[in-house]
């Protein structure tokens, strides 16, 4: 059984570990969960819940943050 699954992160196809949570995905991408906002299949997942949500094959994840501008 394959131990990775394909998901879409910010429009790019990515292989992530099967059973990984959103929090683990952020860690893999070296992103700080305190400053990143996560959208999972078009639903916003608040920071305390990131460790509770497991990603599934084909999921669409959008990661945004705040930068200088505007």
């Amino acid at each position: 059984m394959n131990d990775t699954i394909d998901v879409t992160v910010n429009g790019e196809r990515r292989a992530v570990a099967r059973g990984a949570t959103l929090l683990e995905l952020l860690r893999t991408l070296e992103l700080d969960p305190r400053v990143v906002v996560v959208e999972h299949n078009r639903a916003i997942v608040r920071r305390p819940k990131l460790g509770d949500v497991t990603v599934a094959p084909g999921d669409a994840i959008e990661l945004v943050h705040f930068v200088g501008g505007g």
């Binding site: 992103l31 700080d32 400053v35 990143v36 943050h65 705040f66 930068v67």
Partner: peptide, 15 residues
């Protein structure tokens, strides 16, 4: 402040 998509290829970019 601007809300932007995280650039996954440049994760060093600090928010």
């Amino acid at each position: 402040v601007a809300v932007r998509r995280v650039d996954l290829d440049r994760t060093r970019e600090a928010g």
